[in-house]
Structure formats: structure tokens, C-alpha cells
């Protein structure tokens, strides 16, 4: 919006938004600052945000990891899993979204229903049957169950999200391409795909975070400490019967959100830079 804003309005805007941001982010600030407190003082001084005594002990201790593998290993594992499955998700979901949103074919309604239904399946129940099935395929102990299925658009959320975006692209473009002799395949790759970049970026961020945070699959399919992702490793600091190390938990959790945050900061501009005033004629 190109309307001019009076300077005091601008200042008010910043104050309110910044205050809101602070409230939103306070719990996270607590987590980060607490991770630098000596572990015995974290809980007793919970109301005091800034540490009076700073220490790196939580990071050093937490980083040591488990069974001889440091969090460095776990980070790499998480990156590998999240990046590959995200790539697969983007590719497959956009293909299917195009079909469901733009093309007519028999069984489309049923397919759409099935796609939606995948959004409603609780992971905890499919756990056991999926485990049995993957075991049958000899995939237990590998990363396959955590990566391969995502190359087949099994998360309806992303298909639906991209469908929603494609919906915002005027059909005139498709028509124009068709008249020009483009096949549906060319239309998808040359016309649609470039225009849904915001949706792809949004999906990439979501997918990355969801895969990064998923510990249930790792619990079942990763049976070597060397292959553990962060999501699973973080759980091991806390065991009710033998005591928990809150310092290490907070420290490693802080590190764990860094990649997603960085990813978001890098891409958030292109995310919202849509097709605001480009390419839409008439």
C-alpha cells in the first residue's frame, strides 16, 4: 500500500508490534538465556531472565551426546533427513496439486478426498502397522521410512496448500498457454511452477520443521545411536526415574531451533514477495 503514513503513526506501529513480538518471543528468550545459567540455578531463578552467572557448561555437556556420538552427528543426521524429505515433498506435492486443481479426470474427487484424509491420520496409531509393513520391506534400521514416502506426496497438507495457491493463479494463463500449443506438462513447469514459489517456500519451511521435530519415526526405525536425529536425542536428557539435565536440554534445544530460524530468516522475504503486481493482466 503506497499511502503515506504520518511519522507518529509509524512510531506507534513499531512500539505496538515490537511489544507484541517481545511477548511472543519471551518464552524462547527464557530458553536461550537459561541455557547459559549454571544448571542448578535455572529453575530457582526462573523469573529472572538475564543470568547473573554465565556458563557454557550446558552446551559442553549437552554436546557430548550419547554412546560416543556428539550432537554434531545428530545435527548432520537431522539435516540429511529433513532436507531430502523436504525436497521430495515439494516435488511430489506440487505435481499432485496441479492435477487436482487444474485438470479434469475421472476419480479426481475421490483422489482429493483421499489426499485430505491423509491430513487426518494420527501418527501414533499408524505407527505399529506401518512398522510391520516397513519391516516386511526390510526398511527398519534405515532412513528409508523417514524419507522415501515423502517423495510420494503422502502429506495431504502440502498438496492442499499448493492447490490453494494455484487457485489464485488466473486460469487465463493456462488457457493462453494451451492456445500457444503448450502441453499440460510444459504449462506446469514453465508457467505454474514459477508462480507458486511462495507456496513452495512456505511448504519447504513447514516440511523442514516437521521432519526436524519428528521423533516417533526415529524411535522406531533408527536403531543405531550413530543414525539418531536430534529430535530423538533431545528426549534422552529427561528420564523421570534417573533425573533430568535441564541445562543440557535447554542448551541443545536452543541449538536445535537455529537451522529452522536461519532458514526462515533467509527465505521469508521471497515468501511474501508474491505476484503482488507482476504478470497479472486483465
Amino acid at each position: 500500500m503506497k499511502t503515506e503514513r504520518k511519522p507518529w503513526k509509524e512510531v506507534l506501529y513499531h512500539i505496538l508490534v515490537a511489544a507484541g513480538a517481545l511477548i511472543m518471543v519471551y518464552p524462547l528468550l527464557w530458553m536461550v538465556f537459561s541455557s547459559f545459567k549454571p544448571v542448578d540455578t535455572i529453575l530457582p531463578t526462573a523469573k529472572q531472565l538475564i543470568p547473573t552467572e554465565w556458563t557454557l557448561r550446558n552446551y559442553i555437556q549437552g554436546w557430548k551426546g550419547f554412546m560416543g556420538y556428539t550432537f554434531g552427528t545428530f545435527f548432520l543426521n537431522s539435516f540429511f533427513i529433513s532436507l531430502t524429505s523436504t525436497f521430495g515433498t515439494l516435488l511430489s506435492s506440487s505435481l499432485v496439486a496441479y492435477a487436482l486443481q487444474r485438470l479434469q479426470f475421472k476419480g479426481k474427487k475421490i483422489l482429493f478426498g483421499l489426499v485430505l484424509s491423509t491430513m487426518m491420520l494420527p501418527a501414533q496409531i499408524l505407527m505399529i502397522p506401518q512398522f510391520m509393513w516397513y519391516r516386511h520391506l526390510n526398511w527398519v534400521g534405515t532412513y528409508f521410512p523417514m524419507i522415501l514416502p515423502y517423495f510420494f506426496a503422502i502429506q495431504g497438507f502440502f498438496v492442499y496448500l499448493i492447490m490453494n495457491f494455484i487457485d489464485g493463479i488466473p486460469k487465463d494463463l493456462d488457457e493462453a498457454a494451451k492456445i500457444d500449443g503448450c502441453s499440460y506438462y510444459v504449462t506446469f513447469f514453465r508457467i505454474i511452477l514459477p508462480l507458486i514459489v511462495p507456496a513452495l517456500v512456505t511448504s519447504a519451511i513447514f516440511s523442514f520443521i516437521w521432519r526436524w521435530d519428528d521423533y516417533l519415526s526415529a524411535l522406531l526405525y533408527v536403531n543405531r545411536a550413530s543414525m539418531r536425529p536430534i529430535s530423538l536425542a533431545l528426549q534422552l536428557f529427561n528420564d523421570p526415574s534417573s533425573g533430568s539435565d535441564i541445562g543440557s536440554t535447554l542448551a541443545m534445544s536452543t541449538l536445535s531451533i537455529v537451522p529452522a530460524t536461519v532458514l526462515f530468516l533467509i527465505f521469508q522475504k521471497s515468501l511474501v514477495e508474491g505476484i503482488a503486481s507482476t504478470g497479472i493482466k486483465g
Binding site: 505435481l95 485438470l103 479426470f105 517423495f151 506426496a153 498438496v159
Partner: peptide, 11 residues
């Protein structure tokens, strides 16, 4: 209709 099916194939 074919294109629709082929694009939907991954799912």
C-alpha cells in the same frame, strides 16, 4: 485426463 492421472501418480 491422462495428464491428470500422470501428475497424480506420485500420490
Amino acid at each position: 485426463s491422462t495428464a491428470g492421472l500422470i501428475f497424480s501418480l506420485p500420490f
